[in-house]
Design a protein around this nucleic acid. Structure first.
Length: 221
DNA sequence: TACCAGGAGAAAA
DNA sequence: TTTTCTCATGGT
């Protein structure tokens, strides 16, 4: 039997505390409803959040960010509204797939009542909803304890030497969830820290000295 | 001008 | 089973 890789809990906690001192961490996922989280999660696939904001603004201006309005909106019109987020045709299809799923299965309320694994598998069965998008919806939309692994999280964990970098999505999720108390709010806080830190430092490989990410870097002491 | 961003799925190897 | 390609706008 192969042993699951683990994250050094002490180093993870140390990093988290340092980041809390370094940055003002916000709640981070700005949305007025579960539906808005879910739509935003699809729109942000491989896309900068600034462009997602433009698309969300268009949807709100058109008063289209409600379940009934969105599901009755023709796909071409939806694509037009979300145009600034890029991949607008494919994302319009994905949003429609999600809406049809919700309509057929009883909506987010029904999803919330399922056990976590069943809810996650249900979301993953929707075309266009992969692990990260499903986990965004579960954690930020439904407040369920699932750690979201995005490219920010992976990049930062790799840079501070807490992971190898070749772990699968599910491996990383399991590693983080095992290292932390199983609470949605804690997962959100840690995730926010990864996102904030990733936004502050350069993406160069190897990292330039000016944005050394090591825990013992004088810049963070 | 070229490259990249808070992915996912289909097609090709 | 693993790798590569496609979807696309907007910022740097």
């Amino acid at each position: 039997m192969t042993r699951q890789p683990q994250i050094d809990k002490a180093e993870l906690s140390k990093f988290y505390k340092q980041m809390l001192q370094a940055y003002k961490i916000n709640h981070w996922w700005p949305a007025d409803s579960v539906l808005e989280v879910a739509v935003g999660a699809i729109l942000t696939q491989n896309t900068m959040w600034k462009n997602v904001e433009k698309a969300i603004k268009n949807l709100k201006s058109a008063r289209a960010l409600t379940f009934q309005r969105l599901i009755s909106l023709p796909e071409t019109q939806l694509a037009e509204l979300i145009h600034p987020s890029g991949y607008y045709n494919i994302k319009a299809k994905r949003i429609k797939s999600l809406l049809i799923f919700l309509e057929n299965t009883g909506g987010f309320q029904k999803l919330r009542k399922m056990d976590l694994q069943t809810a996650r598998n249900s979301l993953l069965s929707i075309n266009g909803i992969g692990p990260e998008t499903a986990d965004d919806i579960l954690l930020y939309g439904l407040n369920l304890p699932v750690f979201v692994i995005d490219s920010y999280t992976r990049r930062i964990l790799e840079r501070i030497d807490l992971i190898e970098g070749n772990e699968s999505y599910e491996q990383l999720r399991s590693m983080l969830e095992s290292a932390l108390p199983k609470e949605a709010n804690i997962y959100k806080k840690y995730h926010s820290v990864f996102v904030e830190h990733a936004k502050q430092v350069c993406k160069k490989k190897p990292i330039c000295e000016a944005c050394c990410l090591k825990l013992d870097c004088p810049g963070f002491s």
